[in-house]
Simulated assay, not measured.
Amino acid sequence: MIPVFDGHNDFIQRVVAAGENGTGIWLDGDGTGHLDLPRIKAGGMIGGFFAIWIPAESSPNDEDAVALMQNPPFSMPLTDEIPHDAALPHAFRQAAALRALERTGTLDIVTSTAGLRRTVAEGRIAAIMHMEGAEAIRDMDALHLWHAAGLRSLGPVWSRPTAYGHGVPFAFPSSPDTGEGLTAAGKTLVRECNQLRIMLDLSHLNEAGFDDIAKLSDAPLVASHSCVHAICPSARNLTDRQLRIIAETGGLVGLNYASSFLREDGKRLPLENLDVMLRHLDHLLEILGEDGVALGSDFDGALMPQDLADASALQNLVQAMRNHGYRNDLIEKISSENWISLLRKTWGN
């Protein structure tokens, strides 16, 4: 099997929801969701970004939202900003849950690429603590505290506003140009993340926020789980202009597996085959080059394609790339090595 390092998953929410059985669903699985240790091992996944994310009262996975997204065009309003004091306990629980997984001896929270490679060589899963939406970070002192706790990747927003910037709505067809850019606090956050070498994730940001980070950041630009707007014109996807800006910085895009961000019709229905995923990969490679394309599944946070139903099926995508004519060394780059190279450039270790 070709090893896969994944740019985004929402598994920690399931661990928290399971309560006392949280580590149990990791070690043994519970028949739900997309991830657990047995399925990760079966699919050749060696690690990835494990997201801390604050749930709202409504989400794109609610029944009414799903029905709307199955019949484009649609434009779902952004949910309200979640106050810091409400967000912080959720974030603490999820960070603690990731630490609990580490105590099982099957996973390490890694903070360097040397540590990542050592963890993989020793047969454990390499987990990067990522925060998707910075509601739980009150100020820069708190950012330093989270960094000390292991945070090495941060998306300033999910698809709702924060004190730092504005996200894109779930809308199709739509441009990502949907509102204002970063706030003054958001610009300070970017500079401080650069200082701490925390990777900044552009996925979910609107276009103005994207442009602000591109102007401010001295690190390679990264979108951990996004797709191509020219193929699927969802507000969540990246335009060719944005892809070129990422390429100019030596950055990277992790291809999202979410069916509704891959399908040309934008419908929230399972992708029937992997052909359109390969079209997205071809387009990303054309603009970003062979060192700028990776994978970012969105496991446990989105509707998966039929042939990528969960982590155990990851080698189906590897085989599809092989059948499409990609060289073995290119498949290895897309599947894991490009992420590790990007992290080395960003973290400096």
Rank of each mutant, 00 (worst) to 15 (best):
L295K: 01
I340N: 08
S58D: 11
I198C: 08
R327K: 13
H229A: 06
S153H: 14
V253R: 00
V66S: 07
M199D: 05
L252D: 05
I246Q: 03
F49I: 10
D298M: 08
N194T: 13
L288H: 00
I109G: 07
I231W: 09
R327W: 05
H90D: 14
H130Y: 11
R268G: 11
A219Y: 01
L281T: 15
L281C: 09
G19D: 07
L243K: 03
P270A: 10
R191H: 14
L262F: 06
A87E: 04
L284S: 02
I82V: 07
R244C: 07
M131T: 09
R124Y: 03
P89N: 09
P72W: 02
A100N: 13
E57Y: 09
G301W: 06
D139T: 05
G167N: 13
L284E: 04
A127W: 04
Q306M: 13
S224R: 02
T249I: 09
L269E: 15
S112N: 10
G24I: 04
N338A: 07
V168G: 05
A100L: 14
T162S: 13
F261E: 00
D139F: 06
G22Q: 00
V222G: 06
G250W: 01
A51C: 06
D275H: 12
D6Q: 02
R268W: 13
R327I: 03
S153M: 14
E122G: 11
A86D: 15
I125P: 07
L189Q: 12
R117L: 15
G186P: 12
I231P: 04
H34K: 12
D307M: 10
G251F: 07
V168Q: 08
P173T: 13
H34F: 12
A65I: 10
D211W: 15
G289E: 03
A127M: 07
S259N: 08
L205I: 10
R124I: 00
V4R: 05
A163V: 12
M76I: 15
G44E: 04
I287Y: 04
